[in-house]
Simulated assay, not measured.
Amino acid sequence: MAMILAAVAAAATPTVCNESCGNLTIPYPFGTRKGCYRDEYFHISCKDSTPFLKGGNLQVLDISLHGEFRISSWVAYDCYKQLVRNGYDDRSLWLFNYSISYKRNKFMAIGCDTCGYLRGYTKQKSITNCMAYCNTMDDVIDGFCSGVGCCETQNPMGVLDYNLSVRSYNSHNGILDINPCGFALIVEEGEYNFSKVHLYNLSDIEKMPMVVDWAIEIQRKNMRIKTQFNNSLMSITFNL
């Protein structure tokens, strides 16, 4: 499928389009100018040499013709001071016609009194949670996310839009000196390695890379792709 996407994109690329934004090369079906992208969902806005998806605030980091692109996604947090909640930020993301990659990302919660919630919206709503606890730094091991200071799990398949939120069960009572905040994030596999120092200062990291799936969809029931190779027509039908 990835080879077909690449071949179709290459065959359909308008000859006048050779686009980039900053250091990012933008292949068709994506583009920055009218006539250079397939439709509005593939529109990339270039603002101060930084590419954003569809005129919004989702920064695009990389685009692959293997049916994926990478964006910069926000980290949700929930902070306490003297057992009183003094700051939080839930994060929502609308991906239009794209979906979060089920295989290439992981959902994580970081903290010592923390539950992260991922509310996903597809044809049906889903809720995934991840709980992390610890009493002292001695309990926590760098690089391990088994629920002690850090938890990780897969995000649901086919999520188009989501809301990330973080909650505490005990207002970080007894652990404020080592962990005043809890965090929740979706991050590309291999792009984040948990460290116990992040229990105190992950707030320095506002965004993480995330992989999103894309495809060229013509029909829902039967997707028929035609492209030209060496003057001969190749036709392929997918039953979805």
Rank of each mutant, 00 (worst) to 15 (best):
V212K: 07
N239T: 06
I205W: 13
N129Y: 07
V148I: 13
H43L: 06
N18Y: 14
K125E: 05
A2E: 15
N23G: 06
L5E: 11
A215Q: 09
C17H: 04
N23F: 12
N105T: 09
C181L: 01
R91D: 10
M1H: 04
S20C: 00
R220C: 09
V84W: 12
G182I: 03
F52W: 03
C36H: 03
M234R: 09
V84Y: 12
H66P: 09
F52I: 00
L5G: 08
F229M: 00
G149D: 04
I44P: 02
Y162V: 08
N231T: 01
W214Y: 14
W214S: 04
S20W: 10
A6T: 05
G116R: 06
Q59T: 07
V8M: 01
Y102N: 08
V211E: 13
R119D: 08
Y28Q: 02
C181H: 03
Y88L: 12
S73N: 10
S203E: 09
A7N: 12
L95P: 02
A12Q: 08
V84I: 07
M157Y: 07
R119P: 03
S92Y: 11
S195R: 15
F238S: 03
G56I: 05
R91Q: 14
V75T: 09
I44A: 02
G182F: 03
Q228W: 01
Y192D: 12
R91Y: 10
L202D: 06
E68M: 06
T25E: 08
C21N: 03
T25L: 11
A7Y: 14
A109E: 02
V197M: 11
Q82Y: 14
I141V: 14
A109C: 08
L164Y: 08
P51Y: 13
D113W: 10
Y77M: 10
N155T: 07
K226W: 09
Q154M: 06
G87N: 07
N170E: 02
R38P: 11
M234D: 00
V8P: 05
I26A: 00
G147L: 10
C130P: 05
V75R: 13
F30E: 01
S165H: 00
Q82E: 13
F30A: 01
K207Y: 14
T114N: 14
N18G: 02
Q124D: 07
K54T: 11
T122W: 11
Y98A: 02
F30Q: 04
Y41R: 01
E188A: 13
Y80N: 02
D142I: 05
N155E: 07
G56H: 06
F69C: 04
M208N: 04
P51D: 09
V212M: 14
N201M: 08
I186M: 15
N170W: 05
G190D: 11
L61M: 12
P209T: 04
V159W: 10
I216M: 07
T32Q: 06
Y162K: 07
L233G: 02
E189F: 05
